[in-house]
């Protein structure tokens, strides 16, 4: 999957797989936090730039 992204021209870091049990709420929050941080550094999905604002919520 990450090679698919690279083939297209998106960073493979935009995708991440994590594993946890149903009791790992803290880890879940942490995973979301980490991912948000990582993607913030990568910047917006370049496909979004050309997209109209009508798709925004």
């Amino acid at each position: 999957m990450s090679s698919l992204l690279e083939e297209i021209g998106l960073e493979r870091e935009r995708i991440e797989m994590v594993n946890m049990s149903s009791a790992m709420a803290v880890q879940f929050a942490q995973a979301v936090e980490n991912m948000t941080q990582r993607v913030r550094e990568l910047g917006p999905n370049p496909l979004q730039a050309t997209r109209g604002s009508d798709n925004e919520e």
Binding site: L4, E7, I8, G9, P46, L47
Partner: peptide, 17 residues
């Protein structure tokens, strides 16, 4: 489906959607 999606994205990123 996968290829079509790839093509749409790639061509958009290449500025020739």
């Amino acid at each position: 489906g996968i290829l079509a999606s790839e093509l749409r994205m790639k061509s958009k990123l290449d500025d020739h959607p």
